[in-house]
C-alpha cells in the first residue's frame, strides 16, 4: 500500500477530503463547447439537482464537468469522480465505477483503484444518502454506456 493510501485510512483525512471537495469542487463549471454529452440528474432525487458533462473521444474520457445544487455528499462524490476518471480509458473508467458501486453497496472493494473516493466508504450506513453518493457517478455511467452504444 502506498503512502497516500495509508493516509486514506485515517477518518480525519477522509473527512478533510470531503470537506475540501465540497468547498472547492473540481471541474465545477459547465461548458458550451461542442463534443460534450450531458446528463441532468433531477429525476432521481428531489433535492440534489446536478448536471454532469463529459467529453469522450475515441477510447478516452477527456473531460468531465458538473454543476448544480447539492449536498456535501453529492457534491464531493461527484467532484472526486471527475478527478478520478478524467484521462482514463473507457474500460478503466467502467472498472472504477463498478468498484465504487461495490463499496457503496458495502461489498469488498479495491481501495487502491478508488483513491480519494474511499472517503464515501461509510455512506452505506445512511441508506437515504446513497442516492447522494451515486448521483454524479450514475450520470457518468450513463454517458459511458451511451458512448458504447453509439460506437458500434
Amino acid at each position: 500500500m502506498n503512502e497516500k493510501m495509508s493516509m486514506l485510512n485515517d477518518p480525519a483525512v477522509l473527512r478533510e477530503v470531503i470537506m475540501d471537495h465540497y468547498q472547492y469542487p473540481r471541474n465545477h463549471e459547465l461548458t458550451k463547447e461542442e463534443g460534450y454529452r450531458s446528463v441532468h440528474m433531477a429525476s432521481d432525487s428531489c433535492i440534489d439537482d446536478i448536471t454532469v458533462q463529459s467529453k469522450i473521444t475515441g477510447d478516452i474520457v477527456e473531460d468531465i464537468r458538473f454543476d448544480g445544487v447539492a449536498c456535501t455528499i453529492a457534491t464531493a462524490s461527484t467532484s472526486i469522480m471527475t478527478e478520478l476518471l478524467i484521462g482514463k480509458t473507457k474500460e478503466e473508467a467502467d472498472l472504477i465505477i463498478a468498484e465504487y458501486f461495490r463499496m457503496i453497496d458495502h461489498q469488498d472493494y479495491d481501495a487502491d483503484l478508488l483513491d480519494e473516493a474511499v472517503a464515501m466508504q461509510n455512506v452505506y450506513k445512511q441508506a437515504n444518502r446513497i442516492k447522494c453518493a451515486t448521483i454524479g457517478w450514475n450520470a457518468m455511467k450513463q454517458m459511458l454506456e451511451e458512448s458504447e452504444r453509439q460506437d458500434v
Partner: peptide
C-alpha cells in the same frame, strides 16, 4: 455545521 454534517459518516 458542514464539518459536523460530514462527521456523521465517520
Amino acid at each position: 455545521s458542514v464539518e459536523n454534517a460530514i462527521g456523521i459518516f465517520f
